[in-house]
C-alpha cells in the first residue's frame, strides 16, 4: 500500500488484519479499523466524489463529519460520510456526482 505508515518511531506495529472492498468497480485492500476515507487514501485514491460544479473532483476535507465533502454511496446507501464510517470487508463503494467512475484513480 502506497501511503501506509508501517514504521513509526513512537507508535507500535500496524494491525495485520486485511479487508477487501470495491470502489467504482475497482478492488482495494484496507486494514481492519480503517475509515473508508483512510482506506482509500492508503491506496492513493484522493478523489471521492465529483461536484455538480463542472464535475470538479473533491476529496476528504474536515475529517470529522462536518463538511460532507467526502460523501459517497456505501452499499447502495447515498451520501454516507467516508471520513467517519468504518470500512468493512466486502463493501461496495461508489463516488457520487458527475463523471462518476471515470476518474477515480487519478492520483
Amino acid at each position: 500500500m502506497l501511503k501506509r505508515i508501517s514504521d513509526h518511531p513512537v507508535l507500535g506495529p500496524l494491525s495485520q488484519e486485511e479487508i477487501e472492498f470495491e470502489f467504482d468497480g475497482k478492488s482495494y485492500q484496507g486494514i481492519k479499523g480503517d475509515s473508508i476515507a483512510s482506506a482509500l487514501l492508503a491506496n492513493g485514491v484522493r478523489t471521492l466524489r465529483f461536484s455538480n460544479r463542472d464535475g470538479e473532483p473533491r476529496g476528504i476535507y474536515c475529517g470529522i463529519g462536518h463538511c460532507f465533502e467526502c460523501r459517497m454511496t456505501v452499499n447502495g446507501v447515498q451520501s454516507v460520510r467516508a471520513c467517519i464510517t468504518q470500512a468493512c470487508d466486502g463493501d461496495v463503494l461508489e463516488s457520487q456526482g458527475e463523471n462518476r467512475g471515470e476518474r477515480h484513480d487519478d492520483f
Binding site: K3, R4, I5, S6, H8, L11, L14, I31, G33, D34, S35, A37, S38, L41, A42, G59, I60, Y61, C62, G63, I64, C83
Partner: peptide, 16 residues
C-alpha cells in the same frame, strides 16, 4: 485538508 484531518489520518489510521 483540515490540519485535524491530517492528524487523525497520520497518527490513528496510520496513513500519510
Amino acid at each position: 485538508m483540515a490540519i485535524g484531518a491530517a492528524q487523525t489520518l497520520t497518527n490513528y489510521y496510520r496513513v500519510r
